[in-house]
Each structure stands twice: as structure tokens, then as C-alpha cells.
Design a protein around this nucleic acid. Structure first.
Lengths: 273, 273
DNA sequence: AGAAATAGTCTCATATTACGAGAATAATCT
DNA sequence: AGATTATTCTCGTAATATGAGACTATTTCT
């Protein structure tokens, strides 16, 4: 592992529970005092970290600044807000927007009018890759290459999630979801919550993410599946055309963007380094 | 400059206008093709960058994830929201919350009920360090050391901002603002907008940031300065006690946290390296 | 489907520079 | 003001970042 990676791993020290780190924490992660300071210094200079009192460091202003840029630049976020709020106002259904980043699915936005349902989701919360309508909807629309790689490197998880015992099954399951144009899951992320998702694409029909309704089992039963599916499909289509209609940034280039999900030995997650 | 710094400077390529970068951009910033890929690779592995199609890269999911951690951890943000919305509901005044990060002032939150006023501010938007009530309020409450360093390294900017021609004047100006407990500026950031700010402190009475009302000159005139000042002071005090009252994280440590604003030669910003 | 083209990775020798230990400095606490 | 602790600096050594180019992988085009 290069020093660059080691330095960036300092950021991994932060988590739900740990909002500030100290010199010791960096040293414990394997670095001499001087090197720990050097890493911290570079990260502070870049604004990713910020010093506070007592020799502890917190995440810095650059994070917030960069997040703003992401919010401004993300076509999903900028184009989905309107349509989502429209539908929310009309139907009063909780829904969220999920973004896909090569090897991560994340909640990008939520509209949560039904306050009686606990608000588990939240912008920035990482989502499981193989469970829930948000993830499956996206998975289904990945390219064949990406799907094959996922089966190769995360086969065990795919099987656990019941997405198929082998490549053929996985492929055909995904294919079916794709043809349906929607995905319904029940309690896969949160008990009693039904997820109804549909995919959002960019101008080149590559999947960008998904919108999903999240409602309690009871309300799902009374509302009627067909209507909800029609609604989510329409919503997703509206967002997609809002994005694609944007005369904006033309890629101008062709070419590759794999997603190696890097791991030298497929199927073996036990070797940490 | 170390390779760490060089790698992190890749993040600086992003900006309001530039939402994706390419290999060339990194190479142009001074790196061979291999090195450029190495930097990109490390940044992608850490999630700070994410590959898209056509060989371009965008800011990655880790940014969003980390911003969420910042939002959750920032006492300013978590404790100020309630009081700010209370006051907003009662007075219908636009206001914002500013955070201070050693060498940067940033907008952390806004409440903007008065929609007729353009919403220039936004979470994550960097703010000028020497102009506007949000900045000056914070400046005034920095420690003597910090103030002295600022005068040393940013003297010219201090003079330009009319904060004092020399250390004595600067010091006494800041001292006065501190005694007042509030700061009013007129059109220093946005024409016609009056800013009325008050400082927010942590449990150790260190300045964390500021809350400021932002209203058009006309409304400021009719509302009456005294009342607004009283309101902002009360609001800031409420937030401060909400933060200080928090039995939460005890620093447990003493010790230093300067703010070198690093630059080997004071007053000389011309030397880039 | 398959082939051409482009994106991304790997190899290897060399020189840059990251590293570690301790001294010097800067900032707070008493 | 002085003691204490956090942070930076110095410097020789060894590790490793670097650059050029070959190689692989993925995508788009046919």
C-alpha cells in the first residue's frame, strides 16, 4: 500500500461513533509520530481535516465545500427534486432517491411526508448493494460486464441475497427486473417497509440511480400495487427525461469505464491486504 | 511539496464550473500519465473520486458520506437548527449559521423564509474571511494569538477591509466588536443586504461560529436596530447554552491548537511554493 | 455477435523523497 | 510570567514514488 493510500485511510478512522481523531489514532493505524503528523498536516492543508483543541482533529471544511459541489453537479439530485416533491404532494408517500457510484449505492435525497414512519434514510447514508428495491433496481440495469464482475467478485453475497445461485440465474433474474421496469421488495432493509423502485437513466440510457417509494406493508396493501408501480415508473421516467433533455454536458468521448471492484482473488474476501 | 499534497491537489481541480476531471487535467497539474493514474486510483479507492464514462472522474460517494458525518457531529449544526427555526417562524427573518474552521468561514445552514430576497447563501459556500457580519463576528472572538497571526499574514487584507491600519487599530476594533457582542455590516457581501451577527461559543467559550440575520436595507430601517440586535444576541446565547449544556464530549486534554495559516514569509503571498 | 479503439494497469530501473528519532518551536495552562 | 504539551523542523538513510512503455480490459462500432 502506498503512502497515498495510507494517508487517505486516516479518513476511514471517522465513523458514526467517532467524530474526532487524535494523533494516537493515526499512529495506531501504523505510522510513526512524525509520519502521523505529516499525514495530518497534508490533510489539514487540503481542508479535509481541521484541527480543534486538545490535539484532536475533525473533518474539515473542504468536505462541506465538496459536498456542495456534488449537490450542484449531480444531475440526479438537481433534476429529481421537483418531480419527487410533486408526487409527494399529491400522494403523500415517502420516497427516496438513490445514487449509484460504481461500487456503492447511496441515499441521495429523501422526501418523507408520512412522518409516522421512522426516518431511517438520510442523504449520505450508505445502502446495502444487494438488498432493497433501491439497490436491485440499479443492479438490474448495470451492463453485462458489470454484472458478470459482480457475480465473480461478490458471488457469495449475490447468493445470500437470493439473486441467483449462479451466473445464469443471476443474469435472468436481473433481466426480468429490467423488463419489468420496476422492483418491489418487502422488509429487506427495514422490517415492515415495502420498497417500490424504478430506474433513472442519463441521456445515454446508463443507469444513474433509482427512485423508490417506501411504505408500510399495510398501506401498500390498501394502495394497490398496480397504481403504485405506475406512479413510480412515471416519476422515474419524468426524472430521466428531465436529465436527458438537459442539453448540457456532452461526453464527447467514448471508451471505457469498467468497475473492477478491485480484489485480486475473486470470491475471496478474507485476504485483507 | 510532497506527493501527498500533490495528490490532494487533484481535488482542487473541481469547482463551480468544473464538475468532472479527466486524466489530462491531472497530468496538466504536473504528473506523468502513470502518476496521474496512480493519484486517481488512490482517490477512487478511497471513494473521494468516482469514475464515470469516457475517462472522466467526478467527486465520489465518500464525500457525501463524510459530509453526513460532519452534519451529525457538528454541534453548531445540530443545536442551532431548532432555535433558528423558532426565531424564523416568529419574525420571518432570513438568517444563516456560519462555521469557523481555523482558516475558513463557511455557511453551515440557512433559514430563508423571506423568499423575495435572493438566496445567495447555501450550505458549503465559502465566505469571505474579512467581510460581512458572519466573518467579523467570528474574527472578533479569536484568541489574541490568532488575531496577531492574521495581522501578520493577512495584514493587507485586514487593511483593505478597513479593520485597522496596524495591529493596534485591528486589536482595538476587534476588542470593541467583542464588547458589543454583535456586529452589523451593510452590503459588504451582497449589495443592499444588512448583516446582523452574534457569536456562538462552545463550553470553553471558544468561538465556534456565528448566527446572522440578513435583511434588505429597507426592512432593517423599519424593524429597528435595537430589537434586531437583542434578538440575534438572544438567539446566539440560546444556541451557545444548548451546546455548552450538552454533557457530551469532554476534551479531557488541554494543549495547543494554533492556526499557522502557514506561509513561510509573512505578508508575501506571491511565492507560490 | 466480433474487432478496433481507448481506458486503465503493470513492470522495472532510477532517483526522489518519505521515514524515524530527537531537537527546536509555538501555544496553552497554571 | 513559566511550565507543559502539541506541533514543526533537521538530517541521514532506506524505502518507494516516478516515468516510459508494454500489456490488459472494456467499450463502442460494425
Amino acid at each position: 500500500m502506498s503512502s497515498l493510500d495510507k494517508m487517505l485511510k486516516v479518513l476511514d478512522l471517522f465513523g458514526e461513533d467517532r467524530m474526532s481523531i487524535q494523533l494516537d489514532d493515526v499512529q495506531a493505524a501504523g505510522a510513526s509520530r512524525a509520519t502521523a503528523y505529516r499525514y495530518i498536516q497534508s490533510l489539514c492543508d487540503s481542508g479535509l481535516l481541521a484541527p480543534t483543541t486538545g490535539g484532536s482533529y475533525v473533518l474539515g471544511p473542504r468536505i462541506i465545500e465538496l459536498d456542495r459541489l456534488v449537490r450542484r453537479a449531480d444531475p440526479l439530485l438537481t433534476r429529481a427534486g421537483g418531480p419527487m416533491r410533486d408526487v409527494s404532494a399529491r400522494l403523500g408517500i415517502n420516497m427516496m432517491l438513490c445514487s449509484y457510484y460504481g461500487d456503492k449505492v447511496m441515499c441521495a435525497d429523501i422526501v418523507w411526508p408520512e412522518r409516522s414512519v421512522p426516518e431511517y434514510y438520510e442523504r449520505g447514508r450508505p445502502m446495502p448493494m444487494f438488498r432493497g428495491a433501491m439497490a436491485k433496481t440499479i443492479l438490474a440495469h448495470l451492463t453485462p460486464y458489470q454484472l458478470r464482475n459482480i457475480m465473480l467478485w461478490h458471488g457469495e453475497l449475490v447468493r445470500e441475497a437470493g439473486l441467483g445461485e449462479n451466473w445464469e440465474q443471476f443474469r435472468s433474474n436481473m433481466s426480468r427486473l429490467r423488463r419489468d421496469g420496476y422492483c418491489i421488495t418487502r422488509g429487506e432493509v427495514i422490517p415492515d417497509l415495502v420498497g417500490i423502485g424504478a430506474p433513472v437513466f442519463d441521456a445515454e440510457r446508463r443507469v444513474l440511480g433509482s427512485v423508490v417509494f417506501a411504505l408500510p406493508e399495510a398501506r401498500f396493501q390498501s394502495a394497490g400495487k398496480e397504481e403504485l408501480v405506475a406512479e413510480i415508473k412515471t416519476l422515474a421516467a419524468r426524472i430521466t427525461s428531465a436529465i436527458a433533455g438537459e442539453a448540457g454536458v456532452r461526453p464527447a468521448q467514448r471508451a471505457a469505464r469498467p468497475r473492477k471492484i478491485r480484489s485480486p482473488v475473486p470470491e475471496d474476501a478474507s485476504s485483507v491486504e
